[in-house]
């Protein structure tokens, strides 16, 4: 492991992403990526009494799925990194308490999944043999905590995004046949002064651009080096802004760039306005869709940059970025 350039870390023995799993809620199940997920739910409670309990159950089941898919026992996992959107990351703590695996709680808002993978990769490069990374979010519990009660008759502005209900989990391993995590670039906190809690894409886009450029400069690569570049949950508006910003900085990413929040829903039929968001947005899209593309070698080198709006219910601030770079040999 060595630092290259300003903020990028290059792995000498790149960790393998051994296995991924994703479980999503009913709305995501109607979206264009439905067939890539391991399990889709019919209702947002999943037999539980509250949304918070349901979210814990979703992350718990996702983690069980990924462990059994990898064909290992949970004792083989050295530690896990997990987080979610709820205060004090309760979904992860409650959902994963029975696993008896050393636990690191991670909060990076919507970037939690990628942040977990980065920290996990560092552990694998260091002491660990297998590390579990997981995240979850739930539309109802997120609305309840950050916005308004569900039954309040308000209008969602066109720039608002839809929190993805679901969970994504991945197991990183020291040895394996790939896909590998080759470089990671932790992003800086970037605040361009957007105060509108209903326009998260615009708040996070500058952070995405900042991290992407740092990554390209540090590694000496061009955007075209990658088969595809993905952002976590910038949505339609954020996506357009990012393309514009990078164009003004002299990079053209229009042809190979897309956003997980754009991919997961069908904008016209699902009325999700600017697209998906939340921890589970890039968590499920990566674990369900992108990982399979990598494994089937439809995509070989991808760059995944997730951004999180660091906001809580009282201070609506923003934004930092945690990008990750995953190259398949």
């Amino acid at each position: 492991m060595e630092k290259i350039g300003e903020q990028t870390i290059k792995f000498n023995t790149p960790p393998t992403i051994l296995e991924c799993a994703a479980i999503v809620g009913p709305k995501e199940a109607q979206g264009p990526l439905a067939k890539y997920f391991d399990q889709t739910l019919d209702d947002e409670f999943w037999g539980e009494k509250t949304w918070e309990k349901a979210e814990s159950k979703i992350i718990k089941e996702t983690v069980s799925t990924v462990i059994s898919k990898a064909g290992i026992s949970s004792k083989e996992i050295d530690c896990m990194f997990a987080g979610d959107l709820l205060n004090q990351c309760i979904s992860s703590c409650f959902g994963l308490r029975q696993l008896n695996i050393p636990f690191f709680g991670v909060f990076g808002a919507c970037s939690t999944f990628v942040e977990s993978l980065m920290l996990g990769s560092i552990c694998v490069e260091g002491f660990a043999n297998k590390v579990l990374c997981a995240t979850s979010s739930h539309f109802c519990s997120a609305e309840k905590q950050f916005r308004f009660p569900l039954e309040l008759g308000n209008q969602r502005p066109p720039s608002s995004q839809w929190t993805v209900t679901g969970s994504g989990a991945a197991i990183l391993s020291k040895s394996g046949k790939g896909p590998y995590v080759t470089n990671i670039t932790p992003g800086k906190i970037v605040d361009m002064g957007i105060k509108d809690a209903n326009n998260m894409g615009a708040a996070m886009a500058p952070a995405f651009a900042d991290t992407l450029i740092s990554h390209l400069v540090d590694t000496g690569r061009n955007p075209s080096y990658y088969d595809a570049i993905f952002s976590g949950d910038l949505g339609y508006i954020g996506k357009e802004i990012v393309i514009d910003i990078l164009k003004s900085k002299g990079y053209n990413i229009k042809s190979n760039y897309n956003d997980c929040g754009v991919l997961i829903f069908d904008k016209t039929s699902q009325d999700t306005h600017s697209g998906g968001s939340g921890c589970a947005c890039c968590g499920t899209v990566f674990s369900g869709y992108l990982f399979k593309q990598l494994r089937e070698k439809k995509l070989k080198k991808i760059l995944l940059i997730a951004t999180g709006a660091l906001t809580n219910s009282t201070t609506t601030q923003q934004g930092e970025t945690i990008p990750r770079n995953c190259t398949r040999n």
Binding site: I194, P206, I237, E240, I241
Partner: peptide
Amino acid sequence: MDPLESKETYKQYVDKKSPNSP
């Protein structure tokens, strides 16, 4: 034009870029 020149220009840029309510 660089939309990230300052917070002010970015705000104006975002306002222009974000769709209006019908």
